[in-house]
């Protein structure tokens, strides 16, 4: 590739420095998989399958955003599954009958509180994050179980059902939501003061502190946003599935980490691009649709998830991501 074309690519995608190549690769492979999957099964590759994939992705993309921020600062949030379940339960129980903005905000506030407590445990008490969030995962799940005594009360609020099952101009609203989340998430992570400081903290805590960033506040903030995203996902899931269950978050626990890691973010923090998470989400959902169509079980699907994670973090490490990115963005370096 010549320096000129590289330069023009870089100029046309100035904000995507770094892992651009890898992300484009993921999107590209996904885009190829969709029509190619017709060869696997004639029912695949149609607009409706693509649409279904994107609709399902809209929820994982949201959890992935929060998890991504926590991973960005070099921690892990294992509590999201039970936050999803708890907010799902509260959504049907409190919002189902009489939707009100105050109740809606109350539910979100509870989630944010859980996130803040996670963050305080990690920063002030210095409990390793996976222990802290695993503990809060158990506690929150216990609260949800205790509150419901095993049976989830209430009904699905109508506005959530409309949101997740409706269409605007023939396009399912969750797809619009997906696009919106991708754009907003990308901007928050890359361009806001908050996002920048998270990168700084994850890249190098000592430097960030020397540069005047309040490291602990940023980490607490990341956990709070993660919980908030899990809560919103819980609500979307209620709308999508038409109700809440105590296990509704379980399917998001590992995938939320998987999409971030497969999306090219460093599990060590400091590196990552939200669009990578978005690409990885759609990619993995496409793969699982494909696997389902092939008649392969849920088990193989999970197995392949695991292999992909190992492939990305282990064998390729950051090399593929950075090399591919470099090919596209700065071959003229030397």
């Amino acid at each position: 590739m010549t320096a000129i074309s590289a330069h023009s690519v870089r100029r046309s995608l100035p904000a995507l420095s770094g892992q651009t190549g890898y992300i484009l690769l993921l999107f590209g492979v996904t885009a190829l998989l969709m029509p190619l999957s017709r060869f696997v099964s004639p029912s695949l590759g149609s607009w409706s399958t693509v649409s279904a994939i994107l609709v399902i992705s809209s929820m994982l993309v949201l959890v992935g955003f929060g998890q991504g921020l926590v991973i960005l600062v070099g921690e892990l949030d294992l509590s999201i599954a039970s936050v999803i379940a708890l907010t799902g339960v509260l959504t049907t129980a409190w919002l189902g009958e009489s939707p009100s903005l105050v109740t809606f905000l109350e539910i979100l506030a509870i989630a944010v509180l859980i996130g803040v407590l996670n963050g305080i445990g990690v920063t002030v008490l210095k409990v390793p994050s996976f222990i802290m969030t695993l503990g809060s995962q158990l506690i929150v799940a216990g609260i949800a179980l205790g509150y419901t005594k095993g049976t989830v009360p209430g009904t699905t609020p109508r506005f959530l059902g409309d949101l997740m099952l409706g269409k605007v101009l023939g396009v399912p609203t969750p797809i619009l939501l997906l696009i919106g989340i991708a754009v907003v998430g990308f901007v928050i992570q890359r361009y806001t003061v908050f996002g920048r400081r998270l990168y700084a903290v994850g890249g190098n805590r000592a430097t960030a502190a020397i540069a005047g960033v309040h490291v602990n506040r940023m980490i607490v903030g990341a956990f709070a946003v993660s919980s908030l995203c899990a809560a919103l996902t819980g609500m979307l899931l209620v709308g999508y599935g038409g109700g809440a269950t105590l296990g509704m978050g379980d399917g998001y626990f590992l995938p939320s980490i998987a999409v971030v890691v497969v999306g090219g973010s460093s599990i060590l923090g400091g590196r990552g691009n939200y669009l990578g998470t978005v690409a990885a989400t759609i990619f993995l959902q496409t793969i699982s649709t494909l696997i389902q169509a092939l008649g392969i079980s849920q088990g193989w699907q999970t197995f392949i998830y695991g292999c992909l994670i190992i492939a990305v973090v282990g064998l390729l490490k950051r090399d593929l991501a950075t090399k591919a990115g470099r090919l596209l963005t700065r071959p003229g370096k030397s």
Binding site: L76, F130, L254, I257, A258, V261, I267, L268, S297, Q298, G299, W300, Q301, T302, F303, I304, Y305, G306, C307, I309, I310, V313, G314, L315, K317
Partner: peptide, 26 residues
Amino acid sequence: YLNVQSIAATLGTFIMCSGLALVIMP
């Protein structure tokens, strides 16, 4: 030998095992 962060590596193998377990016993 590959110097992968232990959390990342074992997260991957954990998911693999979970998948295999489901394959063996759905």
